[in-house]
Amino acid sequence: DEETLERIAKELKEKGWTLIVNGKLITDAREALKWLLEEEERR
């Protein structure tokens, strides 16, 4: 759910983690959240 996604995005940002999505590096939590939401919609 959205709360979980926001928590994940926040944790990613705090830890300075990066996500690699389709070979693209995502360092911004907002971008990561946007991607996660798009993935949820596809299901």
Rank of each mutant, 00 (worst) to 15 (best):
E6T: 11
R43W: 13
D28E: 06
T27A: 08
A29Y: 12
L25Q: 08
I26S: 02
E39T: 06
A29D: 01
E38L: 08
E3L: 13
E6A: 12
A29S: 02
K13W: 12
W35E: 01
E6V: 10
E3C: 15
L33W: 04
D28N: 07
I26P: 01
E38K: 07
N22T: 10
A29N: 01
E3M: 13
G23V: 12
L25G: 00
E40N: 10
G16H: 10
V21S: 05
D1E: 10
L33F: 05
A29C: 15
E2G: 06
R30A: 12
K13L: 15
K13P: 03
I8K: 01
L25C: 12
R42W: 05
E6F: 05
K15W: 14
W35Y: 08
L37R: 06
T4A: 09
G23D: 05
L19H: 02
E31D: 06
L36V: 03
T18C: 15
G16Q: 08
L5D: 02
G16W: 12
W17D: 02
W17T: 02
E40T: 09
D28Q: 04
K24Q: 08
I8G: 01
A32T: 05
D1P: 09
K10Y: 01
E14R: 03
T27V: 12
A9G: 04
K10N: 11
I20C: 15
E38D: 07
K24G: 04
D1V: 13
N22Q: 03
K10T: 08
I20N: 02
L33P: 00
G23Y: 07
R42C: 13
E11L: 15
V21L: 11
E2N: 07
L36F: 08
E39L: 13
G23Q: 01
W17Y: 08
T27W: 11
G23I: 14
L12E: 01
T18D: 12
A29E: 03
T27P: 02
L5W: 12
E11S: 10
E41P: 05
V21C: 14
R43P: 06
L25M: 08
K34I: 08
E38R: 05
E39D: 09
K24R: 08
R30Q: 06
E14Q: 05
E40G: 06
K34F: 06
E39F: 12
I26A: 03
L5Y: 07
E6M: 09
A9N: 05
R42K: 08
A29W: 14
L5M: 06
R7S: 07
R42Y: 03
E39H: 09
K13E: 12
A9Q: 08
L25P: 07
K34V: 04
K15A: 07
R30E: 09
E40H: 14
R30W: 15
D28S: 06
K24C: 13
E39A: 07
E39M: 13
L25R: 01
W35M: 07
L12C: 14
E41I: 13
L33H: 00
E14C: 14
T4P: 03
A32H: 01
R42G: 05
T18A: 12
K34Y: 05
E38G: 05
K34H: 03
V21P: 00
E31I: 07
D1R: 11
R43I: 11
K15M: 09
A29M: 14
K15L: 12
E3T: 09
L25W: 11
R43M: 08
E31T: 02
A29T: 05
E41V: 11
L12P: 01
L33T: 00
K34S: 07
A9K: 09
G16K: 06
T18Y: 12
R43H: 08
R7N: 05
I26T: 01
E39G: 03
N22K: 04
G16T: 04
A32N: 00
E40P: 02
L5K: 03
R7M: 07
L33G: 00
K34P: 00
K10V: 06
G16S: 04
G23T: 05
E31R: 10
W35A: 06
L19P: 08
E11I: 15
R7Y: 04
E40F: 15
L12H: 03
E14T: 10
A29L: 13
R43A: 09
L19T: 07
L36I: 05
K24A: 11
L12K: 01
E2D: 09
L37T: 05
K13S: 11
A9E: 04
R43T: 06
E11Y: 14
L36D: 00
L25N: 04
G16R: 09
R42D: 06
W35S: 04
W35T: 02
E2I: 10
A9V: 14
T18I: 14
W17N: 03
E14V: 02
L36W: 08
L36G: 00
G16M: 11
V21W: 12
I20L: 07
E38H: 06
E14D: 13
L19V: 11
L33V: 03
L37I: 08
L36M: 04
K10H: 08
R7W: 11
R42A: 04
E14Y: 01
E41L: 13
E3G: 12
R7H: 06
K24F: 11
K24W: 12
T18H: 09
A32L: 15
L5R: 03
L37S: 04
T4V: 11
A29G: 03
A9R: 10
E2V: 12
K15T: 05
G23C: 15
E39W: 15
I8T: 01
R30M: 13
E11F: 13
E41N: 10
K34Q: 11
E39I: 13
E14P: 00
E14N: 06
D28T: 06
E41H: 08
T4G: 03
W17K: 02
T27N: 07
I26V: 08
G23S: 03
E6C: 15
E11P: 01
E31H: 03
L5V: 04
N22Y: 14
E40K: 06
L33M: 03
G23W: 10
E41G: 10
K13G: 14
I26G: 01
K34G: 02
I26Y: 02
I20S: 01
W35H: 10
K10L: 07
E41F: 10
L37E: 05
E39K: 05
D28H: 03
I20E: 02
E31F: 02
E40M: 12
V21T: 01
L19Q: 04
A32F: 15
E38A: 09
L36Y: 06
W35D: 03
E41A: 13
N22G: 07
E11V: 12
R30T: 09
W17L: 11
L5A: 03
A29R: 01
K24T: 07
E39Q: 09
I20T: 02
T18R: 06
R7P: 01
A29H: 03
R42V: 04
L19A: 04
T4K: 07
E31L: 07
I8M: 06
W35Q: 04
I20A: 01
T18M: 12
K13C: 15
G23A: 11
L19Y: 01
E40S: 12
K15V: 04
G16P: 00
E11D: 08
E41R: 11
L5N: 03
E40W: 15
K15P: 11
D1G: 12
W17F: 13
T4N: 05
N22H: 02
A32V: 12
I26L: 08
L37D: 02
A9H: 04
K13Q: 11
E6L: 09
E38C: 15
E31W: 08
G16F: 15
E38P: 00
L5T: 02
R7V: 04
L36S: 00
E6Q: 08
T18K: 04
G23E: 06
R30L: 13
T4E: 07
K24V: 13
E38W: 10
I8R: 13
L25A: 03
G23F: 11
I20R: 00
D1F: 15
D1N: 10
E2H: 09
I20K: 00
L5C: 13
V21M: 04
K34M: 08
L12W: 11
W17H: 04
E14L: 07
E38T: 03
G16V: 12
I26F: 12
W17V: 07
I26N: 01
L12D: 03
V21A: 04
R42P: 03
K24S: 05
L36E: 00
R43Y: 10
K10W: 01
K10G: 03
T4M: 14
V21R: 00
L25S: 03
V21E: 01
T18E: 12
E6K: 11
R43E: 05
A32K: 03
K13H: 12
V21D: 01
T18L: 15
L25K: 03
K34A: 07
K34L: 11
E40A: 12
L25V: 09
E31P: 00
K15D: 10
A32C: 14
A29F: 14
L37A: 06
K13I: 13
L19W: 11
T27L: 12
K10R: 10
I20Y: 04
E11G: 05
R42F: 07
N22I: 15
D28G: 10
E3F: 12
R43K: 10
E40Q: 09
E38Q: 07
N22D: 11
L12N: 02
E2K: 11
E38M: 11
K24E: 06
K34T: 02
I8H: 02
